[in-house]
């Protein structure tokens, strides 16, 4: 099972049209817009009591209020910002580390390459969440930063393995030999030949990692290992809602819908990206 199969498996079964990209972009764009707008404006003060405790959804409070009387819709909007911050941060960290290690492994001697590959396999065998938990636990106190770094590092192993496989495939080509003979340095080979050839597949994989990072962030904060209050992460909202599930079951619905919609949006975006980035697929459809 390679990452390519994973990438392919996600897309199959749905008609391959770029409408997936459009819908995905609209959903993610909406979350981005909402998340950014919370920097300037929210319907209510996120830390103030704006209504009674555990009010059911109404016109004033679209998603109801939490056990402290805070407006849930406001908190969910801020959750968009936190999810996107962690997701984007983790993808950037995971991408930088993963692509670097993957390229090193692809160029390295056989022994070093084998060692790196085996190490990556062990890392990948551990679920992202567990690695992230370890990293968060070992640092002094959980924060938004530790969550980003932890998820980023956990994801980098998958990116590294994919980069290694893709780069090796390109390195085996005759034009690499020709390029080397004509005097191109190894760095030049990476920039001129390897990166342009592998970025479409990498980009799709990074987009999928983005969706996984959003779920991982929510899980970490659900476990109490994510960003501490007053950061209103969706995972923490759901954890708090579980505590009041007998008196106010509606509290567990809205944050979950927000979370799932963002992940589906990202997955659709990844799917559409693949169709656009890969011309062979475009011709087939």
């Amino acid at each position: 099972m390679t990452d390519m199969d994973l990438v392919n498996a996600v897309s199959e079964g749905r008609p391959r049209r770029s409408w997936t990209f459009t819908i995905g972009a609209v959903i993610v764009g909406l979350h981005l817009l909402v998340g950014l707008s919370t920097l300037f404006w929210t319907p209510y003060d996120p830390s103030a009591m704006s209504g009674g405790r555990l009010e059911v959804p109404s016109f004033e409070h679209l998603a109801g209020t939490d056990r402290l009387g805070r407006d849930l819709f406001t908190l969910i909007m801020i959750g968009s910002r936190i999810a996107l911050t962690v997701g984007i941060g983790a993808v950037i960290i995971g991408g930088l580390i993963g692509i670097t290690i993957g390229l090193i492994a692809a160029f390295a001697s056989k022994t070093l390459d084998d060692m790196l590959a085996a190490g990556l396999d062990i890392l990948i065998a551990f679920p992202t969440l567990l690695l992230a938990m370890l990293i968060v636990a070992s640092s002094e106190g959980a924060s938004l930063g530790t969550a980003i770094i932890a998820i980023g590092i956990a994801n980098s192993a998958i990116v590294a393995r994919l980069t290694r496989i893709l780069a090796k495939r390109v390195l085996a080509m005759d034009y690499i030999t020709a390029s080397r003979i004509s005097g191109t340095t190894w760095l030049g080979v990476v920039i001129i030949h390897i990166l342009p050839n592998i970025w479409p597949t990498l980009l799709v994989n990074l987009a999928l990692q983005f969706g996984l990072a959003v779920i991982a962030e929510a899980s970490l904060s659900y476990l109490g290992l994510g960003a501490p209050p007053p950061n209103a992460s969706w995972g923490r909202l759901l954890q708090e809602a579980q505590g009041t599930v007998y008196s106010a079951p509606f509290g567990a619905i809205a944050p979950g819908i927000a979370l799932v919609s963002l992940v589906i949006g990202i997955n659709l975006l990844a799917d559409g990206l693949r169709d656009i980035a890969d011309p062979t697929r475009r011709r087939r459809s």
């Binding site: 079964g13 659900y222 997955n267």
Partner: peptide, 24 residues
């Protein structure tokens, strides 16, 4: 087609949310 679409949505749902919904 429905099975494919539903399973597609299934991978976007975090396990703890399903747990909370089932509890509810």
């Amino acid at each position: 087609w429905l099975i494919s679409v539903v399973s597609q949505f299934g991978i976007a749902v975090p396990v703890f949310w399903i747990g909370i919904l089932l509890v509810t």
